[in-house]
Design a protein around this nucleic acid. Structure first.
Lengths: 351, 351
DNA sequence: GCAAGCCATGTGTGCGCAAACATCACGAAT
DNA sequence: ATTCGTGATGTTTGCGCACACATGGCTTGC
């Protein structure tokens, strides 16, 4: 085969037409007779034409604007990581005429989501990356985007009803199973295991339910071996009452381990366990937040499951850029590996 | 600030010179008077000029050739993954005038490495990605490359003496510590733990030593709690003798867990444990090879540590491409996270 | 029968840059 | 004084493509 790249010019020459006609074929701009169309298509396929993407983006002097709609990173450490991923990707794609604008809503305030969504719409973005944590509000907004042909990718949580271009996140069911397994492996004895939902807001109820199902299923499969799994909800935790309830929970001498589904609930539980000196109870939870890391190092938390929020958003921007710039097809869903963090591999994740 | 990108033309205009002069400054091509140089530098800094990398690579119609020197992927599943990463990256960068040529040497044959290295050199590559598993031979060859100003990146193993542009791999010491920790966590009792080196060839002796040190150190820190760590070498394993030796090892009733440092040694050990029904001994090892995955699923292996060979090579190519194309600075070393694989998160790594 | 319209196709320009090429002034050598 | 070299600078071309624009023939309608 010929080593040189085939250009539009070459195709035109081989088909006996001008570059303009080839261009029309490549972009479906019509006004091409069926015969020449067929001829050009033939040559195109035969020579395996691949557009030079550099020249393409250079030539079409388009600017793209991506709006990122995420919770305020200053209010929550987890979202700060998401935000960092956006910043990183922004940097990376700035060369390609891609600009990213961030819109931060209040994690605890549905109304602020709706308000910001309106702002996003007003900014006339070419695409949107969002964490649609308020289901109803998100559904409304992204239906509107759909109508206006604005593509969007979701990360962290999904709203499948509005069919995003892609969902980037984790398999929560499997995540619950993993949590269960880690407790199981690190105890190697039958007993009672609990999954705790400690949250201040309801927006991630769906995740929690899925995690719970995975957790329960895992132990159900071991049912005949004396394992018992229980699930407990602590919404809107006021410190004193929560502590009393947790204490009640731990009166069960068979209690072997806890999986805490929310990252903040985790370090609350950890502090509790530490305070009461319950070293015999294994503790597993989510996310590399500062306090969780501290408790992991101390040995109060045994395993952390990492969601890689930074990579989620960076990939989201990257996908959108590729989609718009290069018409790349992107996967319908991209579920990240469930990464297990312990004391010994923590630093290798250099957070 | 002005929204528009500043171009060379703009800089030239502001400095009252022509684009040619600015170009000379940007590329250190000399022939610029000190005054104009200073003036241009000033404008450059003031306007924060950033070259349009698309236009740059388009304009300088350079082709780059990267040679990848790795063990024959058909002889070993681990290296097949490395090779897959190269293929993937090749695809990704083909648009940017970057071509990758692969050179496969025999993993068990130093001479073939030297021979292939010569071929690599003859191909006059602009850069090299290599796994320098034969220390001496690699040292010789890359000294030559160094003299000829051919940049190179190492992955998997390192030869720091020849100062590669970057080393991509894992922290083997920490990896040994992690292996120890996983055994420790999944037994929660004092006893004897062994690190086993089972290998057919000596080339990765350095890794093994580092892993061993980490392993031993971990348990040393627990010494007062009745932990004991031993290390055993089984080079050139002939199945019968190896089995006998392993059997001898397991007569110690206190034996709680094994860390096997080589991926092939791992499934040999697993088959042995399975055969003798030693379910009480925890087994930890390396790499997502087909057989290891089987034993993980069966529960014979408890944890696998993933080295992500595919991502190592893909990143290596990516680094070299960025280095040559965009003059991007790349890190001196990039140590990958130590990823822990269990039955429950295995599928989320979609190997 | 001739202008208007339209379809199929060809041509030109610019994206931002690298690099070859051109100019020009000034001083040294003949 | 004329030539030549050289350092400093300006000008042009082309990379491969998108897209606006131009052309030219052929069909309509009156």
């Amino acid at each position: 085969m010929n080593d040189k790249n085939v250009r539009i010019k070459d195709i035109a020459q081989l088909a006996g037409v001008s570059v303009g006609t080839v261009d029309r074929v490549l972009h479906n701009r019509g006004k091409v007779s069926p015969e020449t169309l067929e001829k050009i298509m033939g040559v195109l396929k035969k020579k395996g034409y691949k557009p030079n993407l550099l020249a393409r983006t250079l030539g079409s002097n388009k600017k793209f604007f991506i709006a990122a709609l995420i919770p305020d990173p200053t209010l929550d450490e987890y979202w700060a990581h998401s935000n960092a991923g956006i910043t990183e990707a922004q940097e990376e794609w700035s060369h390609y005429n891609i600009k990213v604008g961030t819109f931060y809503f209040n994690l605890y305030d549905k109304a602020s989501f709706a308000k910001l969504a309106a702002k996003v719409f007003d900014s006339r973005p070419d695409a949107i990356l969002a964490s649609p944590i308020f289901h109803q509000e998100a559904m409304l907004f992204f239906k509107l985007c759909s109508k206006n042909n604005i593509p969007y990718i979701f990360f962290n949580s999904n709203v499948p009803e509005v069919e995003p271009l892609c969902f980037i996140g984790q398999d929560f069911y499997q995540s619950g199973r993993l949590g269960a397994e880690l407790l199981d492996l690190s105890t190697k004895a039958s007993g009672t295991f609990a999954i705790l939902h400690i949250y201040e807001d309801i927006h991630n109820a769906i995740h929690l339910a899925q995690k719970e199902k995975g957790f329960i299923d895992y132990f159900l499969e071991k049912n005949n071996q004396g394992f018992k799994a229980i699930s407990l909800d602590y919404s809107h935790p006021q410190e004193p009452s929560l502590e009393k309830e947790l204490l009640a929970l731990l009166t069960d001498p068979k209690m072997k381990g806890l999986l805490v589904t929310t990252s903040k609930g985790l370090f609350i539980t950890a502090s509790f366990l530490e305070k009461h000196g319950r070293k015999d109870i294994r503790l597993v939870g989510y996310d590399l937040l500062r306090e969780n890391i501290e408790y992991l190092k101390k040995g109060v938390i045994d395993f952390l499951i990492h969601q890689n929020p930074k990579r989620q958003t960076a990939l989201g921007i990257s996908y959108l850029a590729n989609y718009m710039l290069f018409k790349k097809t992107i996967p319908n869903t991209d579920l990240f590996p469930l990464e297990i963090i312990t004391r010994q591999n923590l630093k290798t994740f250099n957070i």
